[in-house]
């Protein structure tokens, strides 16, 4: 293992702990959220940060084929956001 490889691996391994800690803090807001839009905000931020975390993990596993998962996860989290926004708005404006 060259010096560059061990340097990158150690740095990204330290990075992972901060990501996991912030995921747990987002989950506190998601379980505690008083209204529906608060929970939507929490799961939105959780999904986008999970996409960035999957990119970092696919560098760390040295397996570049894992990268399309991040793109797909981003697009479907956005779709969930739009569904709930349409539901909340149709109740006031009538379909």
């Amino acid at each position: 293992m060259s010096f560059l490889e061990s340097w990158i691996t150690n740095f990204l391994t330290i990075t992972m702990f901060f990501y996991i800690a912030s995921f747990l803090l987002y989950l506190v807001r998601l379980f505690k959220g008083p209204t529906i839009p608060d929970m939507i905000l929490a799961i939105d931020a959780l999904g986008y940060d999970l996409a960035a975390f999957l990119i970092i993990l696919s560098i760390l596993f040295k397996n570049p084929v894992l990268i399309p998962c991040a793109i797909v996860l981003t697009l479907w989290i956005y779709a969930l956001d739009i569904y709930v926004a349409k539901y909340l708005e149709a109740k006031e404006m009538g379909e």
């Binding site: 209204t35 529906i36 839009p37 608060d38 939507i40 905000l41 939105d44 986008y48 996409a51 960035a52 793109i71 981003t74 697009l75 956005y78 956001d81 739009i82 709930v84 926004a85 349409k86 909340l88 708005e89 109740k91 006031e92 404006m93």
Partner: peptide, 23 residues
């Protein structure tokens, strides 16, 4: 994608919440 869709999703959920007075 995140740069475009993050802002668009935040605007959509904020507009829906304000119109429906959900929060």
């Amino acid at each position: 994608f995140i740069f475009i869709l993050g802002g668009a999703g935040a605007h959509a959920i904020a507009r829906a919440t304000y119109r429906a007075k959900a929060a």
